[in-house]
Amino acid sequence: MSSTSTPPADRTEATEATGPAGSAGPREVADGYRAGRTLPVRVELIRQLKRRRTMMMGGILFALPFVLLVAFRIGGEPGGANNQVSLMDSATASGANFAAVNLFASAGFLLVVPVALFFGDTVASEAGWSSLRYLLAAPVPRARLLWSKLVVALLLSLAAIVLLPLVALAVGSVAYGWGPLELPTGGSLATGTAAERLAITVAYVFVSQLVTAALAFWLSTKTDAPLGAVGGAVGLTIIGNVLDEVTALGDWRDFLPAHWQYAWLDTVRPDLDWTRLIQGTSLSVTYALVLFALAFRNFSRKDVVS
């Protein structure tokens, strides 16, 4: 007597399954399983917000405007030497000036650290905790895992870069009053125009940090040591800044992201010139897209054992 067996109602046959080495083969998955619903961005974001390093970095960025405020209180009003006025010299003119000075003081290095940390700690930390293989066995598709972590790292980096000028603007407005943005070249910008220029500045600083972010993200897929990915990205960023100071390189410096990191200073001029801002943005986005693509390519082929 023959009988025909039927598969269980809660199982379906998956025709494509990619293993660590990229080989395809059949597997069974639970009914209702959707790869796109695994490791939601909301869940990953909550996980990262609860981590101590996120809280510490937020605390440092929050405290920086107060540190500068105390420094100006102790050191007195800044003033230009030889009748030359810089952006730093106008820090106490208004809250807008104080916010711009905070960005100027931190864009070169301080803001590099949280960006490198949030991106370099993505995959490498999971590997270091030996939890990466369990996430993939959940199963969370590799591309989905990497995409969720990328989005969260972008959100945290943007929040870090926005937090600093917002706190600085509030602290500066209380200490020095809400007023126009006094320009180092002379003249001033009305409060509404100043707010727009500060928004453009923050957006550009974020875009200019994408190269460091993508570099740290790519290194995070190459190593199981988070400090290696973070330190590597910060170190290469510093090397880029050093090379930009070598004037003998001539026009070759135009291909260095560091060469355009202070292009946002064009926003604190009477007439906004978009030329350098556009050049710096296009270079940063190009490098970032290449490095992000390399990260996804490397992780899709990586033999995960941690």
Score class of each variant (00 low, 15 high):
residue 5 S to N: 15
residue 6 T to K: 15
residue 7 P to Q: 14
residue 7 P to E: 14
residue 9 A to K: 08
residue 12 T to W: 05
residue 18 T to A: 12
residue 21 A to T: 10
residue 22 G to H: 11
residue 24 A to I: 12
residue 24 A to K: 06
residue 26 P to I: 09
residue 29 V to L: 09
residue 32 G to K: 04
residue 32 G to N: 01
residue 33 Y to V: 05
residue 33 Y to S: 09
residue 36 G to M: 09
residue 38 T to L: 15
residue 40 P to D: 11
residue 41 V to E: 07
residue 42 R to Q: 10
residue 46 I to Y: 07
residue 48 Q to N: 14
residue 48 Q to D: 14
residue 51 R to G: 14
residue 52 R to F: 04
residue 55 M to I: 13
residue 56 M to T: 15
residue 59 G to H: 05
residue 59 G to K: 10
residue 60 I to D: 05
residue 60 I to L: 15
residue 61 L to W: 02
residue 62 F to C: 10
residue 63 A to R: 13
residue 65 P to T: 03
residue 70 V to E: 06
residue 75 G to Q: 14
residue 76 G to Q: 04
residue 78 P to E: 02
residue 83 N to G: 11
residue 83 N to M: 07
residue 86 S to D: 03
residue 86 S to I: 00
residue 91 A to Q: 05
residue 96 A to S: 06
residue 98 F to G: 04
residue 100 A to V: 09
residue 101 V to K: 00
residue 102 N to P: 05
residue 103 L to G: 10
residue 104 F to D: 08
residue 104 F to V: 10
residue 105 A to T: 11
residue 110 L to V: 13
residue 110 L to P: 08
residue 111 L to T: 01
residue 113 V to N: 02
residue 114 P to T: 03
residue 116 A to N: 05
residue 122 T to C: 05
residue 122 T to D: 08
residue 123 V to W: 00
residue 123 V to C: 03
residue 124 A to S: 14
residue 128 G to C: 07
residue 130 S to K: 14
residue 133 R to T: 14
residue 134 Y to D: 11
residue 136 L to E: 04
residue 140 V to I: 11
residue 142 R to W: 00
residue 143 A to E: 12
residue 143 A to D: 13
residue 145 L to R: 02
residue 146 L to C: 03
residue 148 S to F: 01
residue 148 S to T: 02
residue 154 L to I: 10
residue 156 L to P: 03
residue 164 L to P: 00
residue 166 L to R: 09
residue 168 A to N: 02
residue 171 V to T: 11
residue 173 S to C: 10
residue 174 V to D: 12
residue 175 A to K: 08
residue 178 W to H: 12
residue 179 G to D: 11
residue 193 T to H: 12
residue 195 A to N: 04
residue 205 V to F: 06
residue 208 S to P: 02
residue 212 T to G: 09
residue 213 A to V: 03
residue 214 A to T: 01
residue 215 L to T: 14
residue 218 W to T: 01
residue 218 W to K: 00
residue 220 S to C: 07
residue 234 V to N: 05
residue 235 G to E: 11
residue 237 T to C: 04
residue 240 G to N: 15
residue 247 T to G: 02
residue 248 A to H: 12
residue 248 A to R: 06
residue 249 L to Q: 01
residue 253 R to Q: 07
residue 254 D to M: 13
residue 256 L to P: 05
residue 258 A to E: 04
residue 259 H to Y: 15
residue 267 T to M: 13
residue 267 T to Y: 14
residue 270 P to G: 01
residue 271 D to M: 08
residue 277 L to K: 02
residue 278 I to A: 15
residue 278 I to S: 12
residue 281 T to A: 10
residue 285 V to Y: 03
residue 285 V to M: 03
residue 286 T to A: 15
residue 286 T to Q: 08
residue 287 Y to F: 14
residue 287 Y to E: 11
residue 290 V to Q: 03
residue 290 V to N: 01
residue 291 L to Q: 00
residue 291 L to T: 03
residue 293 A to F: 01
residue 294 L to M: 13
residue 294 L to G: 04
residue 297 R to A: 04
residue 300 S to E: 07
residue 301 R to T: 01
residue 306 S to G: 15
